[in-house]
């Protein structure tokens, strides 16, 4: 079993999601999955296309900025774009931690007979604390968002199908949302709860949703 992960690191957002994607990589390796980690300038279109064609990974985990029809890599180079190279994702289970790509790219991938695509149909928003910018894994503000997001990949790696993995992720978003709303709700918790709800609401699971490893 092979997993390709893209991890650009060129701004605050990508540094955070890259650091937290590291938790998924560790989990996958512990379960004997061969991980190809395209980090920083390796998160390029050339590298990704080459590795997918050569290795035929079943799982693709894309981290980076996105638009309705694309997901980007390091320095915002477009890695996968609908109607350009989305055919590369045929037969795979894809999770894109990226804004908006569930709108068009996800739909285009889902039209492929054997592909499942989990992503977001609008902005993925998270809260961080400026005191933890150099140590994202210790940031208590970011943790609920990243734990909920990572649950998609953790569940897939535990051999749940794509739909169940998305549901489990949404359940984590919801449990954190409820906890933050009920914890003597300080203003930061209330705002975080709203953004957790937003991400949960916009997470989509498309295509061959019963596919699993």
């Amino acid at each position: 079993m092979k997993l390709i992960v893209t991890r650009p690191e060129h701004d605050v957002t990508t540094r955070y999601i890259s650091a937290w994607a590291g938790e998924v990589i560790t989990f996958a390796q512990q379960r004997g999955v061969e991980v190809v980690d395209l980090i920083r300038n390796k998160a390029s279109r050339r590298e990704l296309e080459g590795r997918i064609k050569k290795l035929f990974p079943k799982l693709v985990f894309l981290n980076g900025h996105g638009s309705a029809d694309s997901v980007a890599g390091h320095d915002n180079e477009v890695l996968i774009k609908a109607e350009e190279n989305h055919d590369l994702l045929e037969g795979k289970i894809v999770y894109a931690l990226s804004c908006d790509s569930g709108k068009k790219l996800g739909q285009a991938v889902a039209e492929k007979k054997r592909a499942a695509y989990i992503g977001y149909a609008d902005e993925f928003i998270f809260v961080a604390d400026r005191n933890f910018l150099s140590k994202p894994l210790e940031d208590p503000n970011a943790r609920p968002f990243m734990e909920a997001s990572n649950q998609v990949m953790i569940s897939i790696l535990k051999r749940h199908d794509a739909r169940e993995s998305s549901t489990r992720s949404k359940n984590i978003f919801e449990s954190h949302r409820r906890r933050l709303l009920s914890s003597q709700a300080d203003p930061d918790s209330l705002q975080a709860a709203q953004f957790l709800w937003w991400n949960m609401r916009n997470q989509v699971c498309l295509g061959n949703v019963s596919d699993k490893i």
Partner: peptide
Amino acid sequence: SSDSIISLGSEGS
């Protein structure tokens, strides 16, 4: 909190 940073995806932080 003045320490809070909000990441709005491709819009920035």
